[in-house]
Design a protein around this nucleic acid. Structure first.
Length: 888
RNA sequence: GCAGGGGUAGCCAAGUGGUCAAAGGCGCAGGACUUAAGAUCCUGUCUCUUAGUGAGUUCCUGGGUUCGAAUCCCAGCCCCUGCACCA
C-alpha cells in the first residue's frame, strides 16, 4: 500500500505548471471554439464553496470541450459596482465595530482595516484573494481576459451599451412608486427592512366627496366599485385633521397624509386644522351619485392609513356594518350622546345598507351575513373583523357580480368592473390616488416607511412588446440545462416590466446622457461577456480612446470615422469578438433566472441581431450537511478553508457528485472523505497495474474494452448535458468493471490495461485535474492531460456476445453464491448449461470458481444431456432455458 | 398572494405504463485483512418464506383511467426557490 498521497504538493505543482506554460490562455484560431463563462463574483468577501460549485461545473464542461478538440476559454472577471463596497467604507468611517469584526473574521489584519475606507482598495483586496482561490481550485481560466466593472475601459463599454439601448428606445424615463425611508432618503428594499418584508406599494383610490362649504373630503378605498353603496362617511372624532390646499383644491385629511402626498407629486399648502368631532353630523356629497350622506364617527378609522377618512359601505364591509350597528344601538340606548355629537337621529335611522354585489351563497348584504356568522358584535373585535374583511373582499373580488344599483357596470364581475370604474371616474374628475405600503414597513434604521413616487427615473422598458418578442425568440433557440428551468425563463419574460436601471449612489458607470445617475448593478452586468473577447487588449489602449465608434466597429461591424486606434488593433479586436461570440455556455445558481439571466437574454437581443447566447445552465443551492449555509448558523464554509482541509480535487469532485440539475446540493463531510479515499484508490490502481501484464488478449480483455466503450459513451453524453453527477456515476461503474476484471483474470494484456487506464484517467481529469495530471506524468507521459484528446466512443470495439456471456456468467456466479449461503456447502459444483458457447465460456472459468469460491471439484455439462442428471438429487430442479446449479 | 420546481425505502437519489421490491451511493449490521482505520475487500439491509424461489405490503394522501400505475388523469396536503430598484 502506498503512503498517504500529498494532495497539497500535487496541487501546488500543477497550478504553477499550468500558469507558467499558459496552457489555458487562447486566441482565435482555425479550430472550432468553445466560450464558457459563469456569473462573476461580487468582490466584497472571500468565495465560499457555493461559488466553487457553480465555477467547477463550468470548469468541468470547459476542460471536457478542450479535450474534445475545441479552442476553449473560460474567462473570469470581478463585479465591484453597486452599494456594498461603498457601504463597507462608510461603516468603517463611522467606526462600525461589526464591520471591523467582519473584516477581521475574513482574514484581514488589524493594521490594514483603515485601508478599507477606500472602496477601490476593498475591491482590489478581494480580487486578489478570489483570484488566488479560483486558481487553487484548479479552474482553468484565461486570466489575460480579466477585468473589473469599475475599470474605466469597462465604463466606456457600458456607456456604449446604454446609448445603444436608448437609441433603440428601450430606455425610458418614468415615475414610479417605491417604499421610501424618509430618514435614509432612499428606497427601502426587502433586504433593508426590519419589518414588512414582501410589502409593496398599493394604490388607494380617493373619492372626492364635497362639503357644502366647498372643501373636499378625500375618502380612501381599495374598492372603488363600492362607491355606489356608500351610506355615510367615517371620521375619527379624536383626530386633528388638517385643511390643506392640494394642487388646486382644498382637502381635509389626517396630518400624516401631508408628508405622503408631498412625496407623491402633489403640491401641498397647509392652511389650518380641524378636530374630527367638529365634522361629525355634517353632510357631504357623493360625486358619483350626487346624493347627500352623513358624516359619522368611528374610532376604527386609522389616522396613519391613507387620508384618515373613509367611506362606509355596510353591505360589503364588516367594519362599516359593525360601526353603523353600534350607532343604531346608541340611538335607542343613549340618544342624548348622539345629540351631543350633533347627529340627526332621524337621519341616522333612515340609513339602510345598500347591497351592490351579488355573491353566491350570501344575501344582499354579505358583510352582515359574515358578521353574524362569525359572531362579531363590536368594533373592538379587531382580529375577527380583519379576518372577515379579508375573506369577504377576496370572495367578492373573484366571484362577485355588480347589480343594477351600479348603473352602467351592472352585470360586470367585480374584478373587471374595478379597472373600468377607475379609468372612467378618473376622466370625470371624481377621484384622485394615493399610494400606501401593502403593510407596515420599518426601515433597518427604525423609521416607518411610506410610498414615494420617484420622478424622472430611468427604466429599461421590458414591457416593450417587440423587445419581449425578440427575447422569446432567442430563448426558443437556446439550450437550457436543465430543461426544467425553461418554463421559468418563459414566465419571467412575460411578467417582466419596466425595471429601474439607474441609482443615485454606489460605484458604477454614470448614465452618459444624465450624469446624476449611475447604472444599476444588475443592469451593467448583462453583456459583459462580450467584453471578455477584447479585454486582453485593454492594456494597449487609453480609456479615452474607447468611443462609441470603436465599439460600433468591434461589436457591430460599422466602419469608424475617427479614432486614434490603429487599424491593426481594431481589426484584431473585431476578429476576436467575431470568433468567440456569442458565448457557448453561461452558468449560475438558479436564483438568477428571474433577473440576471433573463436580462442577459433581453440585452443581447437589443444590441445584436444574431448573437443570442447559446446555452444557460443553472444549479441549485448548496446546503451544508442538509442545512442552508449561513454565517449565523456557523456552517459557512469558505472555499480556501475547504481547499486547505481536503484538497482541491476532493472539493471539486465532492461538489460535482453532490447534485445535478436544479436539485439542491449537499456538502457532507463523510461523502467528501469517501472521495478522498476513492482518489487514493485510483492512484494505487495505477501503481499496481499500469504497464503490467503480457501482450495476449483473452475474452476478459475484450470484455473490459467493450464495457469501457459503453462507459465512455455514457460519461460523454452526461457531460454534454451538464450532468456531472451522472458522469461520475458512470465513472464509478468504469472503476468497478476494472476491479472485476482484475479479480477475474490472472493473465492480463498490458495493452488493454494501459489503454483502459489511460482513458479512465482522461475521463476523470475534468473533475480532478491535479491528481490526474500527476498520475499522467507518473506513468511517463510528457504532455499535459489537460490538453489530451478525450476518449472517443467506438461502437466497433464492443463485442456484444462477450458482454452477454459475461453478464450471464455474473448471474450464475451470483446464484452460486446464493446457494452456497443457503446450503452451507461448497465442496462440489455441478453446472448444467444450454449451449456449447456457454459450456466453453464457463469451462474457461473453472479455476475462478475454485479459487474464488473454494470449490474442490467443478463440473460443467450441457443440460440437455440427460445422463448427467442424477434423478435422486436436487439438480433435477434445474430448469431448461436457464442454467442449472447443483452444489454438494 | 402570484409564479416556477419538487415529494421514491433510515438518508441522498435513479426510475415516466408491464422486464419494478424499485439502479447507485451513504448510513447501519455481520464477516475477512490489519498493531491500527475516515483504509480495502466480501455479505446482508420492507415482511414472511426459500438451495439460486415464492407470496404479501410499498414509491406524499384520496379518488379515477387501464388486463396492468412509482410512472397517466383529477382533487387535496406538504416542502423548496423567486417576486424588482437588491447583489
Amino acid at each position: 500500500m502506498s503512503q498517504e498521497i500529498d494532495f497539497k504538493q500535487i496541487q501546488k505543482k500543477w497550478k504553477k505548471e499550468w500558469l507558467d506554460k499558459k496552457i489555458f490562455e487562447s486566441s482565435s484560431d482555425k479550430r472550432k471554439k468553445w466560450f464558457s463563462n459563469a456569473a462573476f463574483p461580487y468582490v466584497n468577501a472571500p468565495l465560499h464553496i457555493g461559488h466553487a460549485f457553480t465555477y467547477t461545473r463550468i470548469d468541468v464542461i470547459t476542460r471536457f470541450k478542450r479535450m474534445q478538440g475545441y479552442n476553449a476559454i473560460f474567462p473570469f472577471a470581478f463585479h465591484a459596482t453597486g452599494e456594498p463596497i461603498v457601504g463597507v467604507a462608510e461603516r468603517l468611517k463611522k467606526g462600525d465595530k461589526n464591520q471591523i469584526k467582519i473584516l477581521l473574521d475574513s482574514g484581514v489584519s488589524e493594521k490594514d482595516i483603515d485601508k478599507f475606507k477606500d472602496p477601490k482598495y476593498t475591491a482590489r483586496f478581494w480580487i486578489n484573494q478570489i483570484k488566488n482561490d479560483v486558481q487553487n481550485l484548479g479552474i482553468a481560466i484565461d486570466w489575460t481576459r480579466s477585468f473589473t466593472t469599475i475599470d474605466p475601459e469597462f465604463n466606456r463599454f457600458i456607456e456604449w451599451q446604454y446609448r445603444k439601448l436608448k437609441d433603440k428606445g428601450y430606455v425610458t424615463k418614468g415615475t414610479h412608486p417605491v417604499i421610501w425611508c424618509p430618514s435614509c432618503e432612499s428606497p427601502t428594499g426587502d433586504h433593508d427592512r426590519l419589518e414588512g418584508v414582501g410589502e409593496t406599494p398599493v394604490e388607494y383610490i380617493i373619492f372626492k366627496f364635497r362639503l357644502p362649504s366647498g372643501e373636499i373630503l378625500p375618502l380612501a378605498t381599495l374598492r372603488p366599485e363600492t362607491v355606489y353603496g356608500v351610506t355615510n362617511v367615517w371620521i375619527n372624532p379624536d383626530i386633528e385633521y388638517v385643511i390643506t390646499d392640494v394642487d388646486k383644491e382644498t382637502w381635509i385629511m389626517s396630518k400624516s397624509c401631508i408628508e405622503k402626498l408631498k412625496n407623491q407629486l402633489k403640491s401641498i399648502k397647509e392652511k389650518g386644522t380641524i378636530k374630527g368631532e367638529k365634522l361629525i353630523g355634517e353632510k357631504c356629497i357623493n360625486p358619483v351619485l350626487e346624493n347627500e350622506v352623513l358624516i359619522l364617527p368611528a374610532r376604527f378609522v386609522d389616522e396613519d392609513n391613507a387620508t384618515g377618512i373613509v367611506m362606509s359601505v355596510p353591505s360589503h364591509a364588516p367594519y362599516d356594518w359593525i360601526g353603523l350597528k353600534d350607532l343604531f344601538d346608541l340611538s335607542t340606548s343613549k340618544p342624548e350622546k348622539l345629540k351631543e355629537m350633533n347627529i340627526d337621529i332621524e337621519k341616522l335611522k333612515e340609513i339602510k345598507p345598500i347591497g351592490l354585489i351579488n355573491l353566491k351563497g350570501y344575501s344582499e348584504h354579505p358583510a352582515i351575513d359574515i358578521c353574524n356568522k362569525m359572531n362579531i358584535h363590536s368594533q373592538l373585535e379587531k382580529e375577527k373583523l380583519d379576518q372577515a374583511t379579508k375573506q369577504l373582499y377576496k370572495k367578492e373580488f373573484h366571484m362577485g357580480i355588480l347589480n343594477e344599483k351600479c348603473g352602467e357596470y351592472k352585470g360586470m364581475p367585480v374584478s373587471e368592473a374595478k379597472k373600468n370604474i377607475i379609468a372612467d371616474f378618473e376622466k370625470r374628475g371624481f377621484i384622485s390616488k394615493i399610494w400606501e405600503p401593502s403593510g407596515k414597513v420599518i426601515c433597518r434604521c427604525g423609521t416607518k416607511c411610506f410610498v414615494k413616487i420617484l420622478e424622472d427615473q430611468w427604466f429599461l422598458n421590458f414591457s416593450d412588446e417587440t423587445w419581449k418578442e425578440k427575447a422569446r425568440l432567442c430563448l426558443r433557440q437556446m439550450k437550457i440545462y436543465p430543461e426544467q428551468a425553461r418554463k421559468q425563463f418563459e414566465d419571467t419574460i412575460e411578467w417582466l416590466q419596466e425595471k429601474a436601471c439607474a441609482r443615485k449612489s454606489g460605484l458604477g458607470t454614470r448614465l452618459p446622457w444624465d450624469q446624476d445617475w449611475i447604472v444599476e448593478t444588475l443592469s451593467d452586468s448583462v453583456i459583459y461577456m462580450a467584453f471578455y473577447t477584447i479585454a486582453q487588449f485593454m492594456k494597449e489602449i487609453e480609456p479615452g480612446e474607447l468611443n462609441d465608434e470603436v465599439f460600433d466597429y468591434i461589436f457591430l461591424g460599422k466602419e469608424p470615422k475617427k479614432t486614434k486606434l490603429s487599424k491593426d488593433l481594431l481589426e484584431k479586436m473585431k476578429k476576436e469578438f467575431e470568433y468567440w461570440y456569442p458565448f457557448d455556455i453561461r452558468g449560475s445558481a438558479k436564483e438568477l433566472i428571474p433577473n440576471h439571466l433573463t436580462f442577459c437574454i433581453f440585452h443581447h437581443t437589443a444590441i445584436w441581431d444574431d448573437k443570442c447566447p447559446n446555452t444557460f445552465t443553472v444549479n441549485g443551492m448548496l446546503n451544508i450537511e442538509g442545512q442552508k449555509m449561513s454565517k449565523s448558523k456557523g456552517n459557512f464554509i469558505l472555499l480556501r478553508d475547504a481547499i486547505e482541509k481536503y484538497g482541491s480535487d476532493v472539493v471539486r469532485i465532492a461538489l460535482m457528485d453532490s447534485a445535478e440539475g436544479m436539485d439542491d446540493a449537499n456538502w457532507s463531510e463523510k461523502d467528501v472523505f469517501a472521495w478522498k479515499n476513492k482518489l487514493a484508490t485510483i492512484y494505487r490502481i495505477f501503481e499496481q497495474n499500469y504497464n503490467k501484464g503480457t501482450n495476449e488478449k483473452t475474452d476478459m480483455d475484450i470484455w473490459l474494452e467493450s464495457r469501457f466503450q459503453i462507459h465512455v459513451k455514457n460519461i460523454t453524453e452526461a457531460l454534454e448535458n451538464m450532468k456531472n453527477r451522472s458522469a461520475l456515476t458512470s465513472f464509478h461503474a468504469m472503476l468497478n468493471d476494472f476491479q472485476w476484471y482484475i479479480k477475474r483474470t490472472k493473465d492480463r494484456s498490458k495493452s488493454t490495461v494501459n489503454n483502459v487506464l489511460e482513458n479512465m484517467i482522461k475521463c476523470l481529469s475534468p473533475f480532478a485535474p491535479f491528481i490526474c495530471e500527476e498520475i499522467w506524468h507518473k506513468i511517463g507521459k510528457k504532455n499535459f492531460i489537460s490538453l489530451e484528446k478525450w476518449p472517443e466512443y467506438d461502437e466497433k470495439l464492443i463485442d456484444k456476445e462477450i458482454l452477454q456471456q459475461e453478464d450471464n456468467f455474473k448471474k450464475i456466479y451470483e446464484d452460486i453464491k446464493q446457494v452456497i449461503k443457503l446450503s452451507g456447502k461448497n465442496n462440489k459444483l455441478f453446472l448444467y448449461v444450454i449451449t456449447d458457447k456457454e459450456l466453453n465460456y464457463l469451462k474457461k472459468s473453472q479455476d475462478f470458481f475454485k479459487s474464488g469460491l473454494g470449490f474442490k471439484q467443478v463440473e460443467i455439462f450441457k443440460s440437455d444431456d440427460e445422463n448427467k442428471y442424477d434423478p435422486e438429487n436436487k439438480a433435477k430442479r434445474a430448469k431448461f432455458g436457464k442454467p442449472g446449479i447443483y452444489i454438494e
